[in-house]
């Protein structure tokens, strides 16, 4: 019974998500709205602005370095929470 209800919920969610997927822009098209001026700016100016060839590295440690500081804080918080749980 529990499995049947779970299966019905799963099918409903799956059909809804797949209906959304077929309305999405075509996969890999260069004219998709995600490839906007932000990505162009990063790809064209990254070497000039940061000197790094790896565009992803340039984004995470230069353009959006503050975001990476947040990620480091998340790791610190994970250790703090883990110790608080395990040593209590």
């Amino acid at each position: 019974m529990k499995n049947f209800v779970g299966f019905v919920v799963l099918v409903v969610i799956g059909v809804m998500l797949l209906l959304v997927v077929q309305e999405m822009p075509t996969f890999g098209d260069i004219n998709n709205p995600v490839h906007n001026e932000v990505a162009e700016r990063y790809l064209e100016d990254a070497v000039k602005d940061t000197g790094a060839l790896n565009a992803v590295s340039a984004i995470i440690t230069d353009y959006r370095a503050f975001d990476t500081l947040g990620e480091i804080t998340v790791l610190l918080t994970a250790i703090a929470a883990l110790l608080a749980v395990l040593r209590s």
């Binding site: 995600v34 990505a39 790809l43 565009a55 992803v56 984004i59």
Partner: peptide, 8 residues
């Protein structure tokens, strides 16, 4: 090049 922003 692929879009680097989602990967980052």
């Amino acid at each position: 090049f692929v879009n680097p922003l989602p990967s980052a």
